[in-house]
Nucleic acid binder design. Structure first.
Lengths: 155, 155
DNA sequence: ATAATAATAGTCAAACATAGTCAAAGCGTG
DNA sequence: CACGCTTTGACTATGTTTGACTATTATTAT
């Protein structure tokens, strides 16, 4: 769990201050300077790690006094959120992206750790290794959506 | 007991550091350099010697700051029974038979009701509806075996 | 007011840094 | 001496970093 690259470090930093308050406002260039990277790296971190499906809202403003605001939002409507994830999953999904969805389900308490691991084991690369890669992603999407749909049912 | 080949040596090395901590993170290229072999040799060693059945979980990431993480997990006592179920599952299994296997897992307390339902949702007919019926059963078998193998890990 | 300038943030693609796959060739053992 | 395990490397896939260029907003000068 060590930090292996700048993106991970910045992600951790931002999430740590997000624990203090549910909404933070940063200056892109300041963070970039603080972590000795180019400003656009911040955009990369945000785009890859602070997505809507993970429950983050991001707003920003350019020009003098510009900022980037990241907000951790609570889910208002469970069913709606699950539908969003289904939509995000789409007809086809890579293992990496599917992992992100399961992680989101875990973080939002739709799955516990054990359940998440079980689900992940059903569609990892080896399991779905077909001759055709496209089919692999299609089957994975079907499995994932079926699971999410199942989660809509109260046990 | 001699080390006749590099794969065995690398295996021993990795297992020796796994004795220190239950989870290790390596850089493929570093290990390859250390043992003077091509990087893909590491993949070979992992695929042949660090399998789930043997109680190892492997994750990896590519790109800058990439890594391979190997985790040693305890196996449940009655893994024998699980092996029987894997054997029963075989290369291909119908939905009906797979249902029986999941039911057996439930009755023997390897899965609770909710988990069992989640698993069942991953390989029902609709999800795995391919043009080809044979493939459907083959994929179902792979999924099921992957789940059973995961259940060997005492989480 | 309006135009120019400064101060931000966003986009995108190229360069770089890893790891994975696969099949052919090599080799050791029964 | 055949069979199966090991070794190798070319090719592929994926994730990160960088920087040139663009877009937007605020401030200042006219």
């Amino acid at each position: 769990m060590q930090n292996r690259n700048i993106s991970d470090i910045i992600e951790q930093y931002l999430k740590s201050i997000l624990k203090e308050s549910p909404s933070i406002e940063i200056k892109r260039s300041e963070i970039a300077q603080q972590f000795d990277c180019v400003p656009s790296q911040i955009n990369y971190v945000i785009k890859t790690r602070f997505t809507v499906q993970n429950g983050y809202l991001v707003e920003s403003k350019r020009g003098g006094g510009g900022y980037i605001r990241i907000e951790k939002v609570d889910l208002v409507d469970d069913a709606e959120y699950l539908n969003d994830l289904i939509e995000y999953t789409g007809k086809s999904i890579t293992e990496t992206d599917a992992f992100k969805v399961v992680q989101a389900l875990y973080e939002n308490h739709f799955l516990n750790r054990r359940e998440a691991n079980l689900i992940l084991s059903t569609f990892n690369r080896n399991v779905l290794a077909f001759s055709d890669h496209e089919i692999e992603d299609i089957v994975r999407a079907r499995i994932l959506k079926s699971v999410i749909n199942r989660l809509k049912c109260a046990d």
